[in-house]
Amino acid sequence: MKPINHVIERARTHPMRIVLSEAEDLRVLQSAQRVSDERIAHVILVGNTARSRQIAAAAGLDLSGVELVDPLTSPLGPALCQSLYELRAAKGMTLDEARREALKPLCFANLMVRLGHADGTVSGAVHATADVVRSAIQIIGVDPSFKLVSSFFLMLLCEPFHTLKGSLIFSDCALVVDPDAAQLAGIAIAAADSAQHLLLDQPRVAMLSFSTSGSARHAAVDKVVEATRLIRQQRPNLDVDGDVQLDAALVAEIAERKIEHSQVHGRANVLVFPSLEAGNIGYKLAERIGRAKAIGPLLQGLRQPANDLSRGCSADDIYYVIAVTVVQAQAAQAAQTAALELEGRS
């Protein structure tokens, strides 16, 4: 079974409520019907309901299994507006501004997640990444376990010609431009958690560099070495190698020659890039030349799942991101339940 099919099957075992804020885009409507028909998620479409139905009818789509919410007429509107005002008043937002902003589909969708009316959200087919991420951070908020929101790609290697098969996490390839050592450690830990939730395998982290085990001396290498030290301090049970070159991260024979006390042994499934420049180039090389399937950018470090799409995405891309968002929401729900049980025993 292809790796993404494992994600889809896991999503189907416990569908979560996923809200899509671009309800007038045909690709979003196509993916919404498919996800609903396959019972992967309970889909909520936020936008102009009449326009959504019109576009769906013209395309022969059946949205009978999808919940349609128009912010202008929804009974949720007043509570969501008040919540936004209370959240942003200290930043200077007035009640009138909150009323206007909350009724915009992107903001409305994130407020639904914040207030528990949905379990996760997917946007970006129409909205720019900067707008999607800003709204998610401001409304859904950063998970207190992390200090920043970062991104990752789920890279799928499942073609017959791929000698390395399976799934890899690439991080950060879309958000944090030049992380310092502490930020890089946080990105790596978040990416390891993402791997734990999605790959059904123990995370094995490679902190990538142009150096392996101090073979080169440079401030850029020092950053990776320090980040690796911080990871081991914060997550002593996490397998991590760094500084490490890509070949030593993925090829056991090379790792054996280059790394004296390796924890990953050339079997990394989480690749952490030292900068956004390296990460963005890396995932696009894997996608365009290596013909890996890239799903993302997916966000990590938020209180609840909110994921971005490329504006050039296909309906299939949206479908896959919704499935991943469901699995992330399942993990968030399980963590919340465990925390409440622990609190009840204390």
Score class of each variant (00 low, 15 high):
174 A>R: 04
166 G>R: 05
185 A>E: 05
156 L>M: 09
198 L>T: 00
192 A>H: 02
205 V>Q: 04
172 D>S: 03
176 V>P: 00
145 S>T: 14
176 V>I: 06
185 A>Q: 05
190 A>E: 14
163 T>I: 11
190 A>N: 13
180 D>A: 10
152 F>P: 10
150 S>A: 08
146 F>S: 15
171 S>W: 00
207 M>W: 09
153 F>L: 03
171 S>E: 05
150 S>D: 08
193 D>V: 09
157 L>R: 04
144 P>V: 14
205 V>Y: 05
173 C>S: 01
184 L>Y: 11
202 Q>D: 15
209 S>A: 04
148 L>T: 11
212 T>E: 06
197 H>T: 07
154 L>A: 03
151 S>A: 06
187 I>Q: 01
209 S>L: 01
206 A>G: 08
184 L>K: 07
186 G>A: 14
181 A>N: 12
171 S>G: 07
187 I>M: 04
151 S>L: 03
169 I>C: 07
160 P>S: 03
145 S>F: 14
182 A>C: 10
188 A>F: 00
204 R>C: 07
152 F>R: 02
197 H>Y: 08
198 L>Y: 00
173 C>H: 00
199 L>A: 05
208 L>H: 05
212 T>M: 06
181 A>Y: 12
148 L>K: 11
200 L>C: 14
169 I>Q: 06
145 S>C: 12
208 L>V: 05
206 A>E: 07
161 F>L: 08
